[in-house]
Design a protein around this nucleic acid. Structure first.
Lengths: 222, 222, 222, 222
DNA sequence: TATGAATGAGCTTTCATTCAT
DNA sequence: TATGAATGAAAGCTCATTCAT
């Protein structure tokens, strides 16, 4: 009867409470090391209660990842919808990825661990949101190619580079418990992405060429 | 009682045999899903025998990762020692990473899963080889900067980009069971790396052009 | 929330509804395999409601058996009260046993399973009706002996034979899901019972022959 | 560590020890009421050891019934093979059934409880031995008919009568904890069986014809 | 009365590890 | 060294029962 926690958390529904508790304890010690009873304790509910909301421990993990990743992808898509240029889109991807993970450190930890689940069912269940994210990235590159801002390149390789880099940067940040500096990596990462994609400014006026020049100068030494 | 395996494998020491068996079965279903008895069976030894060579299941995982990653890093270092230019080094990193993983698909699968171990002890133990690899990458970039082939950029971000991209490409390849095409991704990836690092040819015109040419020939069939 | 069932059944009291539901689900999968919640669902009531009518799951089983067996024995006693001769009584026992079980297949299934409860309390509780039935059978035999229709034999053994045979025939019928043929076994069984008891016609010639004829007519369509 | 029991029992193999322990505790409180740990304790082994010999608790029950019933049926068949007449066969059935159950009171208790398992898998698994027993009984009756010792009667009904009566007598004996008197019921039961089957002596001497005549008079008008 | 979410004791089963041989 | 039967702690999960509404 953890009364403190009961009090503090009972405004949320049990479902959310269990999901949050699971995020915490899975982040701490990993899905496999963590008995259901620990999740229950953290959530301030009885062991059996978890099974009123989730069919099994595995389903708890799946729902956790689906809910959280789904939210992340929705957020990412919303932000991207405002972007007019490929550069803006890339910046949004990097910025949103980093800021979201920074705000949801526990989620970052869980995904880092559990996205690589060997378990078939878990992997299939996460594939949806993950492939959505991959599509989002590839679309940005594809549009860049259509707009002639980016030369024709291998979409999949580009996506691997972008996602891999963001993921590894997040992993680094999570592991080194460097608790405020993910966002500071936005510009360096963005600059490298632009270089990797050989991004050029969309055709148009001289203005833009000038602007482009300035930008390159500005980024060159960051 | 697997006599075939016993015969076929008994030239190697028990130690190696167990390590190989563990690589196989951990790759198939993951460290946690895999009972020690399955490793023993695959290795053609008794369950108890494993504990003559490894203190615990965890130590088996640690040694496995240390040995295999160590070998990989040694191999990478050896290859890199021949490279004169940053481009050659980058090409060597991509090519060696991909070819090594392609030749050691099981290792690729195990690392993919277990490099993200939440377990403190395991993580500490594999940090060594992993940081070695990171250093190797960062050195290449650092030298590029010193040689003015690469503008001054954030070393850590560059390393995250390179390692993250290679790792994610490998993950993709492992997951999609696309069994022969990792190496085909070398050039697209390399091109993007060069763009990301804004790699420019080393100063000195003819000499260097000649040198560069030679290197490219040398790497083409390695 | 099974509205159909709620409507259809709400004329009966909750008590009867729960008892009927329990008969159904216990018959399907047995008392132990069957959670209380399944009874509740079938009865169209909440889990908790069951505990307003029955102290425990065990008491539910006890009451179920007591009520149903009680009704069966009352029915049997009523039918027997009309019988003048031992043969008529035996025929009534076989016919009533089979026809009652045929009409209450679910009850037959439950008793088949749960009459053998190892649980002390349950057994004591159902002993009442069961012993009543045994007495009924033994009385018929005893009267036969008194009337000289039956030689002096061991009452208990006779009862075991009669009850055991009827019970096993019913079990057979229940198990083989042969849904209409229990009644067809009346005459063969009766013939054997008469042989086993060495039943002979009561003394008194004409009178009795007439009486006997009437009885047979009376039973023929019952 | 129950050393007494360990000592006393360790001559037998673990398999037999577990089977015996299971027979005891299942007899006491029934399969469902009885945790595996109780079987283990009684057998003087660890809980986990049971799973080295049996895949599951259910398989333990199945094997138990199969082994024990199988032995009983083999014993019955052996005894029957010496019988020349139907009467001898019937007497052997009754005597063997009673004496075997009397010597294996625990088995009698377990079968009484668990032969009526609602569980599909268990039932299917027991069906083999049980149907064997039924066949044995029906064969005896069939041969009696062929030898003209028994009039043409319904085989199945005869078998239900014989098995049902023996089973119920055994149940009675088990329940009333009347620990020495099962065998005393052999003759009364046999007499009834002979009557039920209208058994007549095999053709032969006058004596027998006379005897047979008397018997027929008794039964003739039933 | 009636509800059904919540409880938590208790179950079956797994498996890393030990140790007598 | 090598074995593998035995261990027993610990896990996931079920479900009879309670109680605030």
């Amino acid at each position: 009867m953890n009364n403190d926690r009961l009090q503090e958390a009972s405004i949320e529904g049990k479902f959310e409470r269990i999901l949050n508790a699971a995020t915490e304890v899975f982040a701490e010690s990993g899905y496999h090391q963590c008995p259901v009873s620990k999740v229950a304790q953290r959530a301030g509910v009885a062991d059996g209660t978890i099974y009123l909301y989730f069919r099994s421990k595995e389903e708890l993990l799946i729902r956790l990842l689906q809910e959280r990743l789904g939210d992340f992808i929705r957020c990412m898509r919303r932000e991207l919808s405002h972007c007019k240029t490929t550069e803006a889109s890339l910046r949004t991807i990097v910025r949103t990825h980093f800021s979201y993970m920074e705000k949801n450190r526990l989620l970052a930890m869980v995904t880092r661990l559990e996205l690589r689940q060997p378990n078939q069912r878990v992997r299939l269940a996460i594939n949806g949101p993950l492939l959505d994210y991959f599509s989002l990235i590839e679309e940005v590159v594809q549009k860049g190619i259509e707009r002639k801002e980016v030369p024709k390149i291998n979409l999949r390789a580009a996506r691997q580079l972008i996602f891999g880099a963001l993921d590894d940067a997040t992993t680094d940040w999570v592991m080194t418990s460097n608790p405020q500096t993910l966002m500071s990596g936005v510009e360096p990462m963005l600059t490298m992405f632009k270089g990797a994609l050989r991004l050029r400014k969309p055709r148009g006026t001289k203005q833009i060429i000038a602007l482009q020049k300035r930008e390159e100068d500005g980024n060159a030494d960051s």
